[in-house]
């Protein structure tokens, strides 16, 4: 990991100390390898993974299950320490980035606390971790619920919400405090296609409005392309980067873009890359 562990840093809302390399990159991974050692054998989840994401970028991580894309996201979030290689988030170590609340995480299941209302769930991040408080101009929990289209559902409990609504709450929660990096681990994977399409469009809109950098894990070619400005294609056993494909589609897109000729062409290319890696 890059940089020594920073001891109990007070969470400051100051911009990150811009290291030379971190000035333009939101995330940079160099030769990241992750091995899980169990009693019986060693599993290599990621091998020599390198990539960078620009500030304000939107990168989709695409690959079959078991290719280590969720592991990669967790390395960036400081939930898993890499066995070797360097990771930097806005020029900081992932640990420092986490302590400074530079990142928000959205899981596949909404992971809402069932005893809290939608609003109280969104408020959780400012109640823990020695959070200093919202900066002036930061959207409030209520405004974030409005941003994700849940006006009027503030007092509802998770069991009263649909799967799609729960995931909206968890996105609002991840956006509280204005994180500069949003990590999303197959957030719409458990939803039906209609809800998923709608949330895809809304996530593009939220990305435009918040100017947050997003890393989005998915195993859907269409979702990866529709959302991302770039798609990082991974292959399994061990998890490696196959290719990084730029998505040359209009910045303002709606779902109809999927019927256009460039979309179909890039989809074919992505599928070809995925097909080659399947062995």
């Amino acid at each position: 990991m890059s940089g020594p562990a920073v001891a109990a840093l007070p969470v400051a809302a100051e911009p990150a100390p811009a290291a030379a390399a971190g000035r333009t990159n939101a995330v940079s991974c160099q030769n990241v390898t992750v091995r899980f050692v169990t009693a019986r054998r060693t599993v290599t989840a990621l091998e020599n993974v390198s990539f960078t994401v620009d500030r304000g970028g939107f990168l989709s991580l695409l690959g079959p299950s078991g290719c280590g894309k969720s592991t990669l996201l967790r390395v960036v979030a400081d939930l898993i320490a890499p066995s070797s290689g360097a990771v930097s988030v806005f020029g900081m170590s992932p640990q420092e980035a986490r302590r400074r609340r530079s990142l928000g995480f959205v899981f596949q299941e909404a992971a809402l606390l069932p005893w809290r209302t939608a609003l109280q769930n969104v408020e959780l991040p400012i109640e823990v971790g020695g959070y200093a408080g919202l900066r002036p101009g930061d959207p409030t929990p209520r405004e974030l619920l409005r941003l994700v289209g849940l006006d009027g559902w503030e007092q509802s409990y998770p069991h009263e919400l649909s799967g799609g609504m729960r995931q909206r709450v968890s996105i609002a929660r991840a956006l509280l405090g204005g994180p500069r990096l949003l990590l999303m681990d197959e957030p719409f994977g458990a939803l039906d296609e209609i809800t998923r399409d709608r949330l895809n469009e809304e996530l593009r809109r939220i990305w435009h409005e918040t100017k947050t950098t997003i890393l989005f894990v998915t195993h859907s070619v269409y979702e990866a392309m529709f959302l991302g400005e770039q798609v990082l294609v991974m292959s399994p056993n061990p998890g490696r980067v196959r290719d990084i494909v730029p998505i040359d589609l209009p910045r303002d897109r709606d779902l109809r873009v999927r019927e256009t000729e460039p979309f179909v062409r890039i989809a074919a290319r992505l599928r070809a890359i995925l097909g080659r890696s399947a062995s």
Binding site: D78, L79, R101, G104, A111, L124, P125, E127, V128, G129
Partner: peptide
């Protein structure tokens, strides 16, 4: 919920906060 634990870690929550905001309610 292991995801809720990961969430608390992403939020740099202390053990005390994890206990009072998560574990205690979960145990009720």
């Amino acid at each position: 919920n292991p995801r809720a634990m990961e969430l608390m870690r992403v939020l740099s929550a202390s053990r005390r906060e994890v206990f009072f905001k998560l574990r205690l309610y979960n145990s009720l």
